[in-house]
Write a protein that binds this DNA or RNA. Structure first.
Ligand SMILES: [Mn+2]
Ligand SMILES: [Mn+2]
Ligand SMILES: [Zn+2]
Ligand SMILES: [Zn+2]
Lengths: 133, 133
DNA sequence: TTATTATTGCAACAAAGTCGCATTAATTAA
DNA sequence: TTAATTAATGCGACTTTGTTGCAATAATAA
């Protein structure tokens, strides 16, 4: 099952790149210049995940978010996603936090998947709020 | 708006205590000895959260989970929930991991809420699997 | 007992995500 | 270039989760 190059696929990828933020399905759909079915968007995103271009996580709103992988061409080292994602409650941007975290599990516990999500206020927005005072 | 003591409320609390695992709405409903409406269960659980008896988090399945708070009577120290939750993919149990974690955010970022969730295999289940080999 | 109002059940609803299936279109083979 | 193959899409149907409005019920206070 080889991947085909389609306009929809390119458009989704373009939006993800342009916005520079992790996006939920609905955020993405509202930014698309070409209208596209909901199921199609999910299928495109999940294909990206399978291919390792994108990773998926779940927000504290229960929604799935999708973010471009950095260094995804890098085959040499293991591709981990043990990092937190941060959602700014002011500007709405969702970003990957750089640091890979490690959680110390009790003896005998094994990790299969990691989902870290923090909501708060980003630097830009909190400095704006300071200025307003 | 003072709380009233009702059978439903006691039953939900009893199940949470007995099961010793964080539970999603559907897990809980299936364990109830008294049938109860879905909305009622959510309302009871959310009231527990408001009162600080229970805390809520979101799993990587996008569902809300509810767990009893330990030391909830303890008014002296701040009641934090910056801990991970672990779901065993074998036995299904969801538990709070003891350690409070701290994530180093970029300069100027402020945390409002924390949601940490790890799926994997717990000690009991991974030792069972070893035994089977 | 009676009045007050927190709690419940029920129905309706919105949103998220998935799936089957017929149609379309990208790619490959002829 | 044309025909065959099959990945990708659109659409509708569906499930699950969670919320809300409203009338009925019942715990508590008066
Ligand atoms: Mn990645
Ligand atoms: Mn707690
Ligand atoms: Zn912001
Ligand atoms: Zn287990």
């Amino acid at each position: 099952m080889k991947r085909r190059s389609t306009a929809s696929k390119e458009e989704v990828l373009a939006v993800l790149k342009a916005e520079e933020t992790a996006m939920s399905h609905d955020m993405l759909q509202s930014k698309l210049s070409v209208s596209m079915d909901r199921a199609t968007i999910y299928r495109i995103l999940n294909r990206f995940c399978e291919d390792g271009q994108v990773h998926k996580f779940v927000g504290d709103d229960g929604k799935q978010y999708f973010a471009l992988c950095i260094n995804c061409g890098d085959e040499t080292e293991h591709h981990h996603h043990n990092h937190f994602h941060f959602k700014c409650l002011e500007c709405g941007k969702v970003e990957c936090l750089r640091d890979e975290v490690e959680v110390s599990l009790p003896k005998g516990y094994v990790t299969r998947s990691f989902n870290g999500f923090i909501s708060g206020v980003c630097a830009g927005c909190s400095s704006l709020k300071k200025g307003e005072e």
